[in-house]
Amino acid sequence: MIINEQIKASEVRLTGIDGEDLGIVSRSEALALAKRHDVDLVCLSLMSSPPPCRLVSRSAAKQDRNAQKREEKRKAQTPKEKEIRLTPHIEDHDYDTKLRQIEKLLQSGHAALLTVRAQSKESQQAKALLERLVSDLKGKGSKETGIQVSGKGAAVKIIPSE
């Protein structure tokens, strides 16, 4: 957010405190008007010429600036990857519970790493369980990696759908 003296344009399209259009005025005149009313001059966009600016109360400008910083900080955080462990001999009720847990993770924006611990002879059951989970989660998440089967189990990473 560009405010007051940070605005470098020689002329600005000015909007008043109550939203009234004040037309195109010089930067110095707009700054003097802002100082006279004890408000900030805030530039809304740099993409047009002259840039649209608005007179905003100091507390509102500060709140907007803080909200923008919080939003940038939230977007900069990487989504966490949570691991959900299963067994190939899972019962239906437990399966439904794990499915709801995975759906909550995906809705909150986290990725889910689904791992099935199995012995080598149960690896096909583990793969079938993961395929069932992936098909049940269609629309809520998608596979980032394919199902990886190893000697001690199988794993797949599911990321939230946009």
Results as ranks from 00 to 15, higher is better:
residue 51 P to Q: 12
residue 120 S to F: 11
residue 140 K to I: 06
residue 160 P to H: 04
residue 26 S to D: 12
residue 52 P to E: 09
residue 147 I to S: 04
residue 84 I to F: 13
residue 20 E to Y: 11
residue 156 V to A: 00
residue 71 E to V: 02
residue 158 I to D: 03
residue 108 S to L: 12
residue 80 K to E: 08
residue 137 L to F: 07
residue 43 C to I: 01
residue 56 V to R: 07
residue 27 R to G: 08
residue 70 R to N: 11
residue 45 S to K: 09
residue 81 E to M: 13
residue 40 D to G: 00
residue 110 H to M: 13
residue 7 I to T: 11
residue 85 R to C: 07
residue 42 V to P: 02
residue 89 H to C: 02
residue 66 N to A: 11
residue 72 E to R: 07
residue 156 V to I: 09
residue 46 L to I: 12
residue 8 K to E: 12
residue 82 K to E: 11
residue 148 Q to G: 01
residue 14 L to H: 09
residue 22 L to K: 14
residue 115 T to D: 01
residue 55 L to K: 04
residue 24 I to F: 09
residue 33 L to F: 04
residue 36 R to E: 15
residue 20 E to V: 13
residue 103 E to R: 14
residue 56 V to A: 11
residue 62 K to I: 05
residue 99 L to V: 12
residue 148 Q to S: 10
residue 155 A to S: 15
residue 27 R to C: 10
residue 95 Y to M: 03
residue 126 A to Q: 08
residue 46 L to C: 04
residue 12 V to Y: 05
residue 146 G to R: 09
residue 85 R to H: 14
residue 162 E to N: 06
residue 28 S to E: 15
residue 120 S to M: 10
residue 121 K to H: 15
residue 14 L to T: 11
residue 162 E to I: 09
residue 50 P to F: 09
residue 9 A to S: 15
residue 126 A to Y: 03
residue 155 A to D: 00
residue 151 G to F: 03
residue 45 S to P: 01
residue 21 D to T: 00
residue 25 V to D: 04
residue 27 R to A: 01
residue 97 T to E: 12
residue 75 K to M: 11
residue 68 Q to V: 00
residue 63 Q to N: 10
residue 153 G to V: 13
residue 64 D to E: 13
residue 78 T to P: 05
residue 160 P to Q: 04
residue 128 A to F: 05
residue 2 I to C: 01
residue 60 A to C: 01
residue 15 T to P: 00
residue 60 A to V: 09
residue 92 D to T: 08
residue 65 R to P: 00
residue 78 T to N: 07
residue 10 S to R: 10
residue 1 M to G: 13
residue 5 E to L: 05
residue 4 N to H: 07
residue 125 Q to K: 14
residue 25 V to T: 12
residue 5 E to T: 14
residue 67 A to K: 14
residue 13 R to M: 07
residue 14 L to Y: 11
residue 44 L to E: 15
residue 83 E to K: 11
residue 76 A to M: 10
residue 130 L to A: 09
residue 53 C to M: 06
residue 130 L to E: 04
residue 112 A to R: 05
residue 149 V to M: 08
residue 25 V to M: 06
residue 25 V to I: 15
residue 143 K to V: 02
residue 39 V to N: 09
residue 155 A to T: 13
residue 37 H to C: 02
residue 160 P to D: 06
residue 24 I to G: 08
residue 114 L to M: 13
residue 116 V to I: 14
residue 45 S to L: 05
residue 99 L to G: 07
residue 69 K to S: 14
residue 117 R to Y: 01
residue 134 V to T: 12
residue 48 S to G: 03
residue 57 S to Q: 08
residue 27 R to D: 05
residue 67 A to S: 09
residue 157 K to L: 15
residue 109 G to Y: 04
residue 139 G to L: 10
residue 59 S to V: 13
residue 156 V to P: 02
residue 136 D to P: 00
residue 126 A to D: 04
residue 24 I to S: 09
residue 116 V to M: 03
residue 157 K to Y: 01
residue 41 L to K: 07
residue 160 P to C: 07
residue 129 L to Q: 06
residue 156 V to R: 01
